[in-house]
Design a protein around this nucleic acid. Structure first.
Lengths: 143, 143
DNA sequence: ATCTTTGCAAAATGTTTGCATTGGT
DNA sequence: ACCAATGCAAACATTTTGCAAAGAT
């Protein structure tokens, strides 16, 4: 779990004029425990299992605010439901391998890929702010 | 518009034991007109504007079948709604630049990026079947 | 004391399903 | 004639919104 990230998140929220409500802090604590993408459902389950009841609406609201402040990143990994993951303050990040059979999500990092993406961004006429790479197929168990 | 792709799609469907219903053919015709991702809404609008009324359920069913046969590719470009695009039989493909302000979607292709992705796939222990790269930011008009 | 945050319930939205009817082969 | 495909309406699932009550500063 990332103390560093939660501190950063709470500070950024304060600076943006938000108060430290219980629901928001609970969501941050739960996200800090996940190094990779979590669905809103799993997040809610986590919160419940640690004894923190948080209304679903508050979860969505917190995630929205965190996303706007670039503290979390939204991913559509599952067709059904949104997933979110922490954005590391130092810019470190990974991408995702998704198994279409069992749904397993595995993170991976690849410097060569990052370089190629950097070049593609520079070649484009967009001002690219972030990027996602998703590799889909079968995991080693399902293949 | 891609005659080649529609022919390929219709053949593949036949071979898979599907009949040539009117709705399905209309969806294929509409997809053939779009070289890049279209939302289900735009697809429905297109169908309506060319005088073909197709029930929304039939559109979703057709897209589902086409996706299972790997004739179209589903993308979550828009948070709200699914998008789809043709899969070219020759394997040619592109990726997407998405403007977070105005929603514009621009396709781009980059051989260096493809090579880096190919390597990442080989390095993984997944059997990767397809991949998506999405670059998000501001387009030249919005920046 | 003030203004934000929360939870609930209700609404909104996109997608899927059941079923009677139509249409393809 | 048979079985698949379609359209409609209803069901569903997720996400958003309105509002009164609770909480933070």
């Amino acid at each position: 779990m990332s103390e560093e990230w939660s501190g950063h998140a709470l500070n950024t929220l304060s600076r943006a004029g938000f108060r430290r409500g219980g629901a928001r802090q609970a969501v941050i604590r739960a996200l800090a425990d996940h190094g990779c993408a979590v669905t809103v459902f799993d997040l809610e389950k986590d919160l419940r299992s640690r004894g923190t009841e948080v209304g679903r609406a508050s979860i969505y609201r917190a995630l929205d605010q965190l996303e706007k402040l670039d503290l979390v990143h939204r991913l559509e990994i599952d067709k059904q439901m949104a997933s979110f993951e922490r954005v590391e303050p130092d810019g470190e990040h990974h991408h995702h391998l998704v198994c279409d059979r069992c749904g397993r999500v595995a993170p991976f990092a690849d410097p060569g890929l990052e370089r190629a993406i950097g070049k593609a961004c520079r070649d484009s006429d967009f001002e690219v702010q972030n990027h996602d790479v998703m590799l889909r197929g079968l995991c080693s168990n399902c293949a």
